[in-house]
């Protein structure tokens, strides 16, 4: 009688533990850095939408986007920004990186840009494509 009451609890507990372990393993796999060599002549073009709210007076959206791009470039990979950040209008910007970023670096750059790294600016990465 007592076993019949305990068994469902044990079953739920086992399922919960299994799900938790699976989730942690999946997260570990997703956040694991796996880099590979890229051709130094290749480039990556990052297109993003930016918007700001409550920014400091005299601080332009372009300045903030450029600052964020530089900061994330330093954080993510050994790559250089080729040329200035280009404003395409309606809050859309474009920047070119040399060399191309591998898959993990692309994810890291996207995460860094869309993260809450700098106050008063929010960025959506539209695309990262090789050029």
């Amino acid at each position: 009688m007592r076993l019949r009451r305990i068994l469902p609890v044990l079953a739920f507990g086992a399922v919960g533990v299994a799900l938790g372990v699976a989730a942690v393993l999946a997260l570990k796999e997703a956040t694991l850095s796996t880099h590979h060599r890229v051709d130094p002549k290749t480039t990556a073009v990052v297109t993003l939408d930016a918007r700001s709210k409550g920014a400091e007076r005299g601080r332009s959206l372009g300045d903030m986007v450029e600052t964020l791009l530089l900061a994330c470039r330093l954080e993510v990979a050994r790559t250089e920004m080729e040329g200035p950040v280009r404003e395409l209008g309606s809050g859309r910007y474009e920047a070119t990186f040399r060399p191309m970023l591998d898959e993990t670096n692309q994810r890291q750059l996207r995460g860094c840009l869309e993260d809450w790294s700098i106050d008063h600016i929010l960025i959506d990465v539209v695309s990262i494509r090789s050029a």
Partner: peptide
């Protein structure tokens, strides 16, 4: 939190 970690958004994950 899990989604932010998966997207490499550490500040959001901390929050």
């Amino acid at each position: 939190l899990v989604v932010s970690l998966n997207r490499w958004e550490w500040n959001r994950a901390l929050f």
